[in-house]
């Protein structure tokens, strides 16, 4: 254990829930805050990312569903930031005064979602990733207030998935150009979500998050869980995905059909499966952030500051 507090370690090992800052070691508090920040930033950034695509909704009903999903995501972000505030952080500063590059959400959101089709594939794949990550925290998290706060989040993520899956099925059944557009979106968004879960377990030296039971599943376990939900569904509706199932000793494993990791051209939204790369390359790409990072952060930061300047006291 990283902490030098055997009593606290025993509490965690027994599966007890931590309820107050007073019970925490400084290391636990730091790791909890970091985990909450990644979760809050991820939910928050999905709002502008989805909003910019929801404007292309093909009907009023579809637009309402898209907007409702965005509202849910903002509420989920609020849960994480609200807890951070209770842990001593300044919520307003976190959201409105941080540099765009310092937000800690997955790189996938930096690649523009530009059509309704890309939005519904995001609902089917990105929200499925959110469901796995948050579902794991909901089940395993040692911090009581967060664990309980996620009760409703899980159900709402199900609603987003429903939107994604229903529309993927419709687009696939429609055939022709609809099907092609769907397949093109899946082709670049599937590997981007695979990457979302981070370094393979074999390369990860040590996970403080697992040690503190802030989450329960490893990166590879989460990736496997995600594939077990996404791959069969996509196959069922006739969409090709670059992964397949292998069974050995009654153990199901989902195996990728391309070198992981490999190079990605964010502007062209295209993977080069013939060009494997290293995780250092991936980290460089992530750290530089993608095409839409600044635009999305500006979308909610700019008016916050402008309005206060021109409407003092309001």
């Amino acid at each position: 254990m990283a902490s030098a507090n055997p009593a606290f370690d025993r509490l965690l090992k027994k599966g007890e829930l931590i309820e107050t800052v007073g019970e925490m070691t400084p290391e636990y508090l730091k790791e909890l805050k970091h985990t909450l920040l990644v979760s809050g930033d991820t939910e928050l950034i999905s709002a502008p990312a989805y909003y910019l695509a929801a404007q292309r909704a093909p009907s009023i009903n579809a637009f309402m569903t898209g907007i409702a999903i965005i509202q849910d995501e903002l509420a989920h972000a609020h849960i994480a930031y609200h807890i951070l505030e209770e842990l001593g952080e300044d919520q307003e500063k976190l959201i409105f005064s941080r540099d765009p590059k310092s937000f800690r959400y997955p790189y996938a959101f930096d690649v523009p979602l530009e059509t309704w089709t890309e939005l519904i594939v995001a609902n089917a794949m990105y929200d499925q990733a959110g469901f796995c990550l948050l579902g794991d925290i909901h089940e395993q998290c040692s911090y009581g207030p967060w664990k309980r706060g996620l009760n409703k989040v899980m159900l709402e993520e199900n609603f987003h998935l429903r939107n994604g899956r229903t529309w993927c099925k419709r687009m696939s059944q429609a055939g022709g150009e609809s099907r092609e557009e769907l397949q093109t979106a899946v082709d670049w968004m599937f590997p981007l979500t695979i990457e979302w879960f981070g370094l393979p377990d074999g390369m990860k030296m040590h996970s403080t998050q697992l040690e503190y039971r802030l989450k329960g599943k490893t990166n590879d376990q989460l990736r496997q869980w995600w594939m077990s939900l996404v791959v069969p569904y996509m196959e069922e509706i006739g969409v090709a995905v670059p992964a397949h199932k292998e069974v050995a000793d009654d153990q199901e494993t989902w195996v990728l059909d391309y070198p992981f990791p490999c190079t990605f051209d964010a502007e062209a939204k295209r993977w080069d499966f013939r060009d494997p790369c290293t995780w250092d390359d991936v980290m460089l790409r992530w750290r530089a952030r993608g095409p839409r990072n600044a635009e999305m952060i500006q979308l909610f930061q700019e008016e916050f500051h402008n309005f206060r300047k021109s409407h003092a006291g309001a």
């Binding site: 009903n61 579809a62 309402m64 569903t65 907007i67 409702a68 609603f159 429903r162 939107n163 229903t166």
Partner: peptide, 10 residues
Amino acid sequence: GCPAADFILE
């Protein structure tokens, strides 16, 4: 403005 209207009808 029920966002789930389409799904419920379906």
